[in-house]
């Protein structure tokens, strides 16, 4: 497996080496291929998880489907490429995937040094800790001397070091490459603590042998703005992903859902008219059909629908909207207008 990923890295490097002047033409390639290639998590319930038939579902997966709907008017024209935290960036840099929708934190070095562009924040998150209830730990500040399991190649690893360093506590870190390995190690008692984004904790807890024996500690030790990202250098492609996401947020704000979108076409509200392509040429501005946003809403749904369906309070993940509510409801989700 190690060898495989070395080979993969080698192939990726060759791709970087051989890839010619294709930086500007991702959309063209996607259209020619008839498929958009989306890098997602390997299996994170609620965010990106294949079922037994290999059908992908989840909040991040729907971001991919939305882009497919915007380009092709069809949510099935996506190829999902599961990536580990460690592989994801090489996969995007080398062009193996067209974009990443994979619980990825927007950081300055990723945005600049790694050569990416983040298009927005589709999930405001923060890092937390999970411990077995039987340890009786109530706060992260009681974790002095603990052994912590986490995933390599993540911001998690770095925040963890920061947290223990700034609180002058020692600890041991066991860092695995795959999320499932982290979970298995935590479940088998190799570690006292499991740490990742709090959304990830909620999702991963559902995979443990007995989820109710574990608690998520109250502390949030970092800011984890998660969002889709593209390669730096193809501004048009970045625009397509960015506005596909903004369309979903705007639709929620304007009360347009997958159920009422057809009626909404008759709406008198000019903002809705522009979004649904009745007025203006907004699709053309990003090289797509003017139906682009209609297709996203009709076939995938607005931001709130996608949230509730995949990670909301009625799902096993059970995350309330919290800071991810619309700005009009006291949250942080806010999309620039389509005009």
């Amino acid at each position: 497996m190690k060898k495989l990923s070395l080979i993969a890295a080698g192939v990726a490097l060759t791709a970087i080496a051989a890839g010619g002047a294709q930086a500007q033409q991702t959309l063209e390639q996607v259209k020619k291929r008839g498929q958009v290639i989306c890098g997602v998590s390997q299996s994170l319930p609620g965010f990106a998880n294949p079922d037994a038939q290999g059908n992908w579902a989840g909040f991040d997966v729907e971001m991919c489907r939305a882009v497919s709907a915007a380009i092709f008017g069809d949510t099935k024209r996506v190829k999902f490429v599961p990536t580990t935290a460690k592989e994801r960036f090489t996969a995007l840099q080398s062009g193996e995937v067209d974009f990443l929708a994979r619980n990825t934190t927007w950081t300055m070095s990723r945005d600049t040094q790694l050569g990416f562009d983040f298009v927005g924040v589709n999930f405001y998150d923060g890092q937390g800790f999970m411990v077995p209830k039987k340890l009786g730990v109530k706060s992260a500040l009681e974790l002095k001397g603990a052994t912590v399991c986490t995933q390599t190649g993540t911001t998690t690893e770095l925040n963890l070091a920061d947290f223990f360093r700034s609180n002058k506590m020692d600890y041991k870190v066991v860092a695995f490459e795959k999320n499932d390995e982290v979970l298995a190690a935590y479940d088998s008692g190799r570690c006292d603590v499991f740490t990742t984004d709090r959304s990830g904790l909620a999702a991963d807890r559902t995979k443990l042998k007995s989820p109710n024996d574990h608690v998520i500690l109250p502390e949030v030790i970092s800011k984890e703005p998660l969002g889709p990202l593209v390669r730096h250098g193809d501004a048009n492609w970045g625009d397509i992903i960015r506005w596909s996401f903004f369309a979903m947020v705007n639709a929620e704000e304007l009360g347009v859902t997958s159920k009422n979108v057809d009626e909404m076409k008759k709406s008198a509200n000019p903002e809705i008219k522009r979004m649904l392509g009745i007025e203006g040429d907004f699709g053309k501005m990003i090289g797509l059909d003017n139906n682009w946003a209609y297709n996203i809403i009709k076939l995938v749904g607005n931001y709130g629908e996608s949230y509730e369906r995949n990670v909301g309070e009625k799902t096993p993940i059970g995350l309330s909207r919290g800071v991810n509510a619309l700005w009009t409801k006291g949250g942080l989700q806010y999309a620039p207008p389509i005009r």
Partner: peptide, 18 residues
């Protein structure tokens, strides 16, 4: 694990690390 893994990922400098 450490260098071709974590360091590569944190710095994004795949060519150099490999």
């Amino acid at each position: 694990a450490v260098f071709a893994g974590t360091v590569l990922n944190q710095t994004g400098q795949a060519v150099e690390c490999i």
